[in-house]
Structures are given as structure tokens and as C-alpha cells.
Simulated assay, not measured.
Amino acid sequence: MPKDAVVYLRYGPYSAVGLSVEHRTFRLEGLQAVLMRDGHEVILEKIENWNVVELVLNGEVVFWCNIKDLEFGGDGKLDPLCEEARLAVLKAY
């Protein structure tokens, strides 16, 4: 995918440390940082599927994972799922 692609980061609600189920973006910070570092525009979009993260390009889901598997906060450099997602976006077309 060329630089400056628009990536829709769709995410569902999840429960954290016994708190209520809500849409939270704390675990998405690293993923957003990795994608923006590559020059992509990231648009957050809430969905109703619990525990899900999807990256959508040109209407096609190119990557998905459990939101709880992403590292909390940070820049995403050390999170292997962020690197996997970055590569999925680069290979998409």
C-alpha cells in the first residue's frame, strides 16, 4: 500500500480489569503510532464486536486481532502484533 493510505482502525468494546465493557483506545495507541509513522492516516471507528480490532483498507479487512492481545499504551515498536499489522497494511493493495 502506498504511503498516505487511509486506514480504518475498527475496534470493539472490551472489559479491562473487571471494569464495565466499553470502547477504549488505550490498547490502540501503539498500533496508531506505528501506522502513522509509516505515513498513513488512521481513522478510528467503533464497532459492536467485543474484543476485536480490524484494519480496513479499500473496504477490505487486511488484519484483525483480539484487542486484549495488544500492549497497553506505548509506541508499538516492541509489540509484535503492531509489526504484523504494519506489514499487512504494506502488503495490501
Rank of each mutant, 00 (worst) to 15 (best):
residue 1 M to H: 02
residue 5 A to V: 00
residue 8 Y to C: 03
residue 8 Y to D: 04
residue 9 L to I: 00
residue 10 R to H: 10
residue 10 R to C: 03
residue 14 Y to F: 15
residue 15 S to P: 10
residue 15 S to F: 04
residue 16 A to H: 15
residue 16 A to G: 05
residue 17 V to T: 07
residue 18 G to N: 12
residue 19 L to I: 00
residue 20 S to I: 05
residue 24 R to F: 02
residue 26 F to H: 05
residue 26 F to N: 10
residue 27 R to E: 01
residue 28 L to C: 06
residue 30 G to T: 03
residue 31 L to K: 09
residue 31 L to F: 08
residue 31 L to G: 09
residue 32 Q to S: 06
residue 33 A to T: 14
residue 33 A to C: 06
residue 35 L to I: 05
residue 35 L to F: 06
residue 40 H to G: 00
residue 41 E to P: 00
residue 43 I to S: 05
residue 44 L to K: 03
residue 44 L to T: 02
residue 44 L to V: 09
residue 45 E to G: 08
residue 46 K to M: 11
residue 47 I to F: 05
residue 49 N to Y: 02
residue 50 W to A: 15
residue 51 N to K: 11
residue 52 V to T: 14
residue 52 V to H: 04
residue 53 V to Q: 03
residue 53 V to I: 14
residue 53 V to F: 04
residue 53 V to E: 08
residue 53 V to P: 09
residue 54 E to P: 07
residue 55 L to K: 06
residue 55 L to I: 00
residue 56 V to M: 08
residue 58 N to F: 12
residue 60 E to W: 00
residue 60 E to A: 07
residue 64 W to Y: 13
residue 64 W to A: 05
residue 65 C to N: 01
residue 66 N to Y: 08
residue 66 N to G: 04
residue 68 K to E: 12
residue 69 D to L: 12
residue 70 L to D: 09
residue 72 F to C: 12
residue 72 F to K: 14
residue 72 F to V: 13
residue 74 G to H: 05
residue 74 G to N: 06
residue 74 G to D: 08
residue 74 G to C: 10
residue 75 D to Y: 01
residue 77 K to H: 02
residue 78 L to G: 07
residue 79 D to T: 12
residue 79 D to R: 09
residue 79 D to L: 08
residue 81 L to H: 14
residue 81 L to A: 13
residue 82 C to S: 11
residue 83 E to H: 06
residue 85 A to R: 11
residue 85 A to W: 10
residue 86 R to Y: 05
residue 86 R to C: 03
residue 89 V to K: 01
residue 89 V to I: 06
residue 92 A to D: 02
residue 92 A to V: 10
